[in-house]
Amino acid sequence: MGQATQAPGSRTDPGVAGPGPAAGPASRVTLALRWLRLVAGVVPFGIYVTLGLLLPMIAVAVGAFQNNDGGFTFSNVSAATHGIYLKGFWQSIILSLLTSVIPGILGLLIAYAIFTAKRGKVLRQVAITAAGVFANFGGVPLAFLFIATLGSSGLVSQWLTSLGFNPYDHGFTLYSLTGVVVVYLYFQIPLMVLVILPALEGLRPAWREAAENLGARTWEYWRYVGGPVLLPSFLGCVLLLFGSALSAYATTEALTNGTIPLTAIQIGSFLNGNVIAGQENIGKALGLGMVVIIAIAMIVYVVMQRRAARWLR
């Protein structure tokens, strides 16, 4: 027993990890091969992240500080943080906050209703399928759907008008920030339902019964047990919705034709070549701004998540 039967690779295996004389070139090769075998599985994902996220991000960050001649400049960042572009950032943040927090709460309530419904299996399957369809229905078709229903001449608007309530006479317009929020709710709520349902299913019925047995009413269970247990997952889901709303482009572009200053649309116009000579790199500065916004959101999330889930550590 002991050394004679020790598994290779264990901490005291001198042929593998030890720094002593046994650690010759052959064992180093073995070690390297073993390490390669371990990381081989994540290499495709690493390549994907590098090509699809890291390199573009670096290119955007570098480009944001370059003038047309390749020289260093702050002018792009300065332009991106003033005037219409600054307003774009604020509008994007407000839109993303509204369309992550509101669907976050509504989606949680809907998911809870599905979760607790009697005959839940069939309902759950139908709801998940429907949510999957709605959550992925976006872009120009979604914009058209809303124009045809809630546009100034849309079916629903006309029907409401025939009932004596024309929403357009009461300050509503589909082609405003409020309208965009309504459209975003269409896919953000189902998305929330999809991502929060597994977390709800993680709540064990025994916790509920134990709390009840100890004298807790429903709201006390949610305040002291269900809510805190669910909070880390809820925060993660809301962050996902925030990112989704911040980067959404096609629906708003199709709906408003760029009349609402949103950063994603402004970047789109740069990509389309609608730029003033000499300001090509402002688009990259706007992209950098979005990276910063997401980074801040993630930092806020991490701080809140660490506090909410300290019992998991």
């Binding site: 134990a210 047995n213 004298g215 807790a216 002291y224 047990v225 019992w311």
Partner: peptide
Amino acid sequence: VPAARRDMGMVFQSYSLFPNMS
């Protein structure tokens, strides 16, 4: 009488401790 008002202590088969509490 609802379960919450019966003053009965119960130990469950599955571990039912609240995971977020010490």
